[in-house]
Every structure is written in structure tokens, then in C-alpha cells.
């Protein structure tokens, strides 16, 4: 058919009146890392559950590795590996046993089973913990074991649902490295969901921003950031309001927003504009306390497409999320 390994057309899932996934269409190319970025409850996990044959779509169609997810469910299952948001391990078995059972269920020959187990355990640095019961593992170790397991049968596509949710910074880094490594070494296509901007930014070749079950935009990570356009200058002065009134007349400033104790300015080539701003302030006897330029990040892009900041969403959801993962 095409070089797309995942293709969906108008995929929809409704629960009664509630539409969890609203007619989404996208495609993922072979070998890329594709990310679904969106706040909690945007429909990311539901989409993964449909694509991994755990849920039937209400409407629309999807193909993975050219297999229809509605009709060729076993072929789809053979082509994919999945790391779920909640751990899906048997905690009363050891790490090695979990992998061994997985290998058997995926029909990996006895002769290569042990070798494959050792190989993936080494990849995620769990070799010396293989005979420890999974209930004694830390959150990060469990997640690494799951990633190892997802790789055992050399899937064409690996699905990662919020792979670093609730993990510490160091473990997140390590997991990002594993994900990059297997994408590069094994040419595994990776489909991941996340609500972390930095994660999407670091890992993904292309991103779909999803909110309220709809895809708002799909593009490469760098394109998404530059569509927001300008560099952003953050400036803090002794008299922000007065300074702003002078800046309103400056032609090369495209956009000014005042905040509690600073101003943000949308400009082109931000680095070169800093001297001009400082000079202007000095002419008007206004003291500049601090000034900085940053490239627009995915948060700016998210704000641009959804009209609200991802960070607001996350802080709104935080209480609920902590409760959920505290179990």
C-alpha cells in the first residue's frame, strides 16, 4: 500500500453521549517516532487502546502494518508491542518470568527465547534484577522491564502510553535514551503519547496536538515551533507600564503582552533586538532589570493551537492524577 505503517481514517470512539475520540485521521511513517501531545483526557489512551485492539472503534478505520485493526486483529497484535500507562506486569512473578511468558505467548522459539530475554534485559540494565519479584521493583524498573518486554518479539510498531509518567528526572532521561536507541538500532516505529512538552520535543520526529478528542494539527516538531513565528523576549523594568506605552510605537514589535512583573514581546531575530530595547529604555530613563530571549517552545505552539496553555491544563489535572497514581 504505502510506506505508512499506521493509517487511520475518521477514527471515532463514543461512550453514550461522550465522544472520547472524534473522527481523527493521521498516518505514521515507517521508522519514525510519532507523538500524540495533549492534556489528560484528550483521548490519547483511548486512541492507543483502539490501535492495539483492546477497544473497537465506533466508527472509522485504521490499519497497522497494512492489517485492518477490526478484521485482522491477530496480525495486528503480532505486529505491535505495547507499554501501557499503568504497569501491566504480574508482580508476583520475577522479571525473567514475565519476559519468558511474553516470549511464549508471542511464539518465540525455545532456542532463542533465553538469548532474547538476556538481550533485552541488558538493553534496559535489569540483568542483575531478573530473578527478583516484580513487586520489589521501583516504578522506573517496572517501566524499563515493560519496555524490554515490548521489544522482545521485535514488533514493527511499539506503542508507549505516557512512558515516563510519574518517574524521576534521571529515569526519564534513561528511558528517553532507550527509546531513541531502539528506534535507531532496530528501526522500530514508535508511537507515543505524552503530556510533557520536553518529552515530545526531545523524542518525536512528528507530533499531533490532540485536545477534546480532536487532532488540531500534525507537523514536525521544529515546524510546529516556528509556526508560532517570533522569538519571544521577556523583559522586566522599573516601570513596565510606562515602558509598554513607548514600545507600542515601535514597528518591529509584533505583539506585546504585559504580565505581573514583566512584558513579553513577539519579534523576529530576538538576539539583535536586545541592544535596541536597552537603548530605548535608557533614553526614557527606565531601568532594565532583566531581559532574555527564548525560541518558541511546544508550549507556545500548544497555546497557539488550543488557545490555552498546556501548563494550566496540567496543574488543573494534577490533584486527580496524583491520586490516581498513588495507588
Amino acid at each position: 500500500m504505502t510506506s505508512n505503517i499506521i493509517e487511520t481514517t475518521n477514527l471515532t470512539k463514543t461512550y453514550g453521549d461522550f465522544t472520547a475520540v472524534d473522527s481523527i485521521s493521521f498516518s505514521v511513517k515507517k521508522g519514525e517516532i510519532f507523538g500524540f501531545l495533549g492534556p489528560n483526557g484528550a483521548g490519547k489512551t483511548t486512541t492507543i487502546k483502539i490501535l492495539t485492539t483492546l477497544l473497537m472503534p465506533t466508527k472509522g478505520s485504521a490499519h497497522i502494518n497494512n492489517h485492518d485493526i477490526k478484521k485482522k486483529r491477530d496480525s495486528v497484535r503480532q505486529s505491535i508491542g505495547v507499554v501501557f500507562q499503568e504497569p501491566a506486569l504480574d508482580i508476583e512473578l520475577t522479571g525473567r518470568e514475565n519476559l519468558d511468558y511474553h516470549a511464549r505467548m508471542y511464539g518465540i522459539e525455545r532456542s532463542i527465547r533465553k538469548e532474547r530475554i538476556d538481550e533485552v534485559l541488558a538493553l534496559v540494565d535489569l540483568t542483575d534484577k531478573k530473578d527478583v519479584f516484580v513487586k520489589k521493583y521501583s516504578g522506573g524498573m517496572k517501566r524499563r522491564l515493560e519496555i524490554a518486554r515490548g521489544l522482545m518479539h521485535s514488533p514493527k510498531v511499539l506503542f508507549l502510553d505516557e512512558p515516563t509518567l510519574g518517574l524521576d528526572a534521571q529515569t526519564r532521561r534513561a528511558i528517553w535514551e532507550y527509546v531513541k536507541k531502539m528506534n535507531k538500532d532496530k528501526h522500530t516505529t514508535i508511537f507515543l503519547t505524552t503530556h510533557y512538552m520536553d518529552e515530545a520535543d526531545f523524542l518525536c520526529d512528528r507530533i499531533a496536538i490532540i485536545d477534546h478528542g480532536k487532532i488540531l494539527v500534525t507537523d514536525t516538531t521544529s515546524n510546529l515551533k516556528t509556526t508560532v513565528g517570533n522569538d519571544i523576549i521577556t523583559v522586566s523594568t522599573s516601570e513596565d507600564i510606562k515602558f509598554k506605552s513607548y514600545l507600542n510605537d515601535v514597528a518591529w514589535i509584533k505583539q506585546i503582552d504585559s504580565h505581573e512583573n514583566h512584558l513579553t514581546l513577539g519579534v523576529e531575530k530576538g538576539d539583535e533586538k536586545i541592544p535596541a530595547l536597552i537603548e530605548l529604555a535608557q533614553q526614557k530613563s527606565i531601568q532594565v532589570k532583566s531581559i532574555s530571549v527564548h525560541k518558541p517552545n511546544l508550549d507556545d505552539a500548544f497555546l497557539h493551537y488550543t488557545g490555552r496553555s498546556m501548563r494550566d491544563e496540567i496543574s488543573n489535572n494534577n490533584t486527580q492524577q496524583n491520586f490516581h497514581h498513588g495507588r
Binding site: T53, D74, R77, I80, F84, A88, H102, M105, R149
Partner: peptide
Amino acid sequence: QFGFLQEVLVAPIS
């Protein structure tokens, strides 16, 4: 509840 069922259900077995 412990999620293991999902692992079993996405495996290519009936």
C-alpha cells in the same frame, strides 16, 4: 486491576 490482563489481551493468542 493490576493491568496484567491488558498484556494478555494484546498478545496474538485467542
